[in-house]
Design a protein around this nucleic acid. Structure first.
Lengths: 167, 167
DNA sequence: TAATATCCGTTTGGTAGCAAACGAAATCGG
DNA sequence: CCGATTTCGTTTGCTACCAAACGGATATTA
């Protein structure tokens, strides 16, 4: 089933080389980018099926709770920025979190277009209980990597984020 | 605006260190995992707004076309696997691609529960025209990295995929 | 200070994604 | 063979996500 041409490549990667190897393509970039995406999917899926499902939270819901925990009460637009969501999406996520009682919205008196979002007591309790467990799970996900490899990975990705994120 | 405590960290990462630094947390794993996710989002968003939108394709649609190009006609379940989508999601993606005329579904005579999916002429033409451009874009996304760094990145991610992907 | 422009969060309409239920088809056990 | 089980792809019901349109509120400027 598994051929062993190059143990450093995944099976699918080998097939791609075979099929496209004669074309003038940038395989190094291709493998780097596609693995970023595949890793993200795997990581998210595992988190949602594991820790997060126990708390009835999606990845987006968790992120929002976590950002509010770290940053404290914030205005809706800033929260969207920080969660890396569009403002429209954030409205929905906050609505869901509100239903669950984790978050509350407060109109801003000085400018009535604005709204701030903050954790409720239940939300705070939840994230304080959840985050350490989430962090353990993060450790598992990259458990194959040494500390210096984790730092190297984070740093390489940081440079991709900066490039891809600009504009 | 920007403090310069540690230029190797993004602004948000610094704040997190400040706010959570006294807790017993695995920061190296946290930064690695969260950067995987942020990089994937940035990369996908940029691709969809750039190259893919010109062809009216989403990331999932593109992936499906691409897999069919590399692998040829395949059965629905295998296609879902290879695209890393649930079978339910794939039904929808294929339906959309069918509407656009890029893909066709063929019932399998020997087993009438099964269906194969393959590129149409238009689909083939599209992916052959699109992929080289997509690949250029991939090159831009990781343009900050040297060849050996790209390989290092791909390899580190491969190990995360294996760990996170195994149930 | 009135008309205009801009800004903010929400709504809308669309695709994407999943899990679980479903129905048709094939396979298995007796 | 025939009833029970398993195996397919689709459907359903839900959340997530985006862009663009919207409508109320604030700023600008003439």
């Amino acid at each position: 089933m598994q051929n062993r041409a190059d143990p450093r490549l995944l099976d699918a990667e080998r097939l791609i080389q075979e099929r496209l190897g004669d074309r003038r393509l940038d395989f190094d970039s291709m493998l780097a980018v596609s693995n970023i995406y595949r890793a993200a999917t795997a990581v998210r899926r595992r988190a949602e099926k594991g820790v997060l499902s126990e708390f009835g939270l999606s990845w987006g819901g968790f992120t929002t709770l976590w950002v509010l925990w770290v940053w404290g009460e914030m205005q809706s637009a800033d929260l969207a920025d920080e969660c890396d969501l569009s403002k429209g999406t954030l409205t929905g996520v906050v609505k869901t979190l509100e239903k669950r009682g984790f978050v509350k919205r407060t109109p801003v008196a000085a400018d009535r277009r604005k709204v701030t979002v903050s954790l409720t007591g239940a939300g705070l309790e939840t994230i304080e209980q959840l985050f350490p467990r989430f962090n353990l799970y993060e450790g598992e996900m990259v458990g194959n990597l040494s500390t210096s490899e984790k730092r190297e990975l984070a740093e390489l990705l940081r440079r991709v984020i900066v490039t891809a994120g600009s504009t």
